[in-house]
Computed example of a mutant assay.
Amino acid sequence: MLVKKIAILASGSGSNAENIARYFKGHPTIQVALIASNKADAYVLKRAEQLSIEGLAFSKSDLQSGKLLEELQKRAIDWVILAGFLLQIPPHLIAAFPERMLNIHPALLPAYGGKGMYGHHVHAAVKAAGESHTGITIHLVNAAYDEGKILFQAGVALSPEDSVETIAEKVHALEYRFFPEVIERQLLGTTASDET
Rank of each mutant, 00 (worst) to 15 (best):
K4V: 06
K5V: 04
K5W: 10
A7K: 12
I8P: 09
L9N: 03
L9M: 09
S15I: 05
N16L: 07
E18Q: 11
I20H: 08
F24G: 03
F24N: 06
K25F: 08
T29H: 15
I30Y: 08
A36V: 02
N38S: 06
K39A: 11
A40D: 11
A40K: 12
D41R: 13
D41W: 13
A42F: 10
Y43Q: 12
V44Q: 15
R47Y: 12
E49S: 13
Q50F: 11
Q50H: 13
L51T: 11
S52N: 11
I53V: 14
G55M: 10
L56P: 15
L63N: 08
L63V: 02
G66I: 08
K67Q: 12
L68G: 06
L69G: 04
E70D: 15
L72N: 04
Q73D: 07
Q73N: 12
K74L: 08
A76K: 15
I77D: 03
D78T: 04
W79D: 02
L82Y: 01
F85L: 06
P91T: 00
A96W: 07
F97Q: 00
F97C: 00
P98W: 05
M101A: 02
M101H: 00
M101E: 00
L102S: 01
I104M: 00
A107Q: 09
L108K: 05
L109M: 01
A111C: 04
Y112N: 02
G113Y: 05
G116P: 05
M117K: 01
G119A: 01
H121S: 04
H123C: 00
H123G: 00
A125N: 09
H133S: 06
T134A: 01
G135T: 02
T137I: 12
I138A: 01
I138H: 01
D146M: 10
G148H: 05
K149Y: 07
I150G: 03
Q153F: 09
A157W: 08
L158E: 02
E161C: 06
V164R: 11
T166I: 12
I167E: 05
A168I: 08
A168C: 06
E169F: 13
V171Q: 12
E175V: 11
Y176Q: 15
Y176D: 14
R177S: 14
F178I: 14
F178L: 13
E181Q: 15
E181A: 12
E181M: 14
E181T: 10
I183F: 07
E184P: 09
R185N: 11
Q186D: 08
L187A: 04
T190G: 13
S193Q: 14
D194N: 14
